[in-house]
Design a binder for these strands. Structure first.
Lengths: 200, 200
DNA sequence: AAAGATAGTAATCGAATACTATCTTTCCCA
DNA sequence: TGGGAAAGATAGTATTCGATTACTATCTTT
């Protein structure tokens, strides 16, 4: 087996670069990740990165596209794996938790991009991701209201905000504890309270 | 009136510096705030900052101390302004929301510090703040359970996590909307769901 | 096998950054 | 009121970062 062939086709090299950034973001503040650190982590020289990306910003854009694609796909799969709105919500919640546990750098990158001043392709991608996430949640919540599974007077927009916020709270707790795995255990209790809050 | 006397006593200059950082954090990514930007914002030369702080890290430490002091004091005041646990929680929630609306940079700085690699005085201060916040919440929640106002089987740790997460979710929404004031309106709906989740 | 295309290396550049050294202004009070 | 200390301005330094360049190695096509 040859773990690291020196020369990689451009698309493979780009994929490896994205993975490197995601892995590094799990260990340090995303905004402090330098191109030198990325290159070192994938055993490449710093300048070589720019053979595949025109700029550092383009790297971030590619990373955010990777995140949006993967996360939304897993949420969608989870949503379709259950057959009642409440079960759908729980599946989506746990799918997101699993994703975050696998890639602890992702929420840091997302929040970091969102609070960036001005606009950038990466920031726009993050905004689109969260917006689409919220819309998907609102749809499930509306369905739950229609089927009588949820409080008919529920504020769906607030409930969607709370859903994402709940996950962020769990992420913050795992940051404080320095233990990524604990998020799985804490997720159950947090979702239980959330479910009571929106149920009838 | 003289808005900007050139020479300020050291302690006043330090206070003005902290305010400048808090204001700048409301406009841009805190980790991208340079000493030059801080100095420019308070109409001072960059080198003069180091007459009052030994390093940039010391500035951050002072800022985090300022945040912890003010936020905890406002939460405590809010907690004591109400006379039932649930009312206390709501008052604390709204006090935090008010604080964030006044200082939109604060949650960014806190989250940014928490996800910093390694340790620093500023990061330790942020950790202490969140820990004490959680403990205070847990105390009110326990009181609510004892008095029968809350679900007797409530997981207080999860409820405290959710409380803070709810606020983070609102902060994220205000970042997306680019409108700090909307957080006041959204806060009511979010807290209503939270209250249902923990009530009996 | 020749030859062009693709990918990587090593060195380096300019800009930006935290921090410092030296000179100047302002304030305060004995 | 004059002199010293505190505070600020000016002009640096060393380092780091993203990006570029000249050159080399490897792969692919004909």
């Amino acid at each position: 087996m040859e773990a690291h062939p020196k020369h990689l086709p451009a698309d493979e090299r780009r994929a490896v670069t994205i993975e490197a950034v995601v892995e590094l973001a799990a260990q340090q503040n995303p905004s402090e990740i330098t191109t030198a650190a990325i290159a070192k982590h994938m055993q490449l020289t710093q300048g070589a990165l720019f053979r595949h990306f025109p700029s550092k910003e383009a790297i971030w854009q590619a990373v955010m596209e990777w995140v949006a694609e993967r996360l939304l796909a897993r949420l969608e799969r989870a949503a379709q794996s259950a057959d009642t709105p409440l079960a759908r919500l729980e599946a989506m919640f746990m799918a997101h938790i699993d994703f975050v546990a696998e890639h602890p750098g992702v929420p840091r990158m997302l929040f970091g991009e969102l609070q960036r001043a001005g606009t950038s392709p990466a920031k726009r991608m993050a905004q689109t991701l969260v917006r689409r996430y919220g819309e998907r949640l609102a749809a499930v919540l509306a369905e739950g209201k229609a089927q009588g599974e949820l409080d008919p007077d529920l504020d769906t927009a607030a409930a969607a905000t709370l859903f994402i916020g709940t996950i962020q709270g769990l992420v913050m707790q795992s940051l404080l504890a320095g233990d990524v795995e604990r998020i799985h255990a804490d997720a159950l209790g947090a979702f239980a309270i959330y479910r009571r809050g929106i149920g009838r």
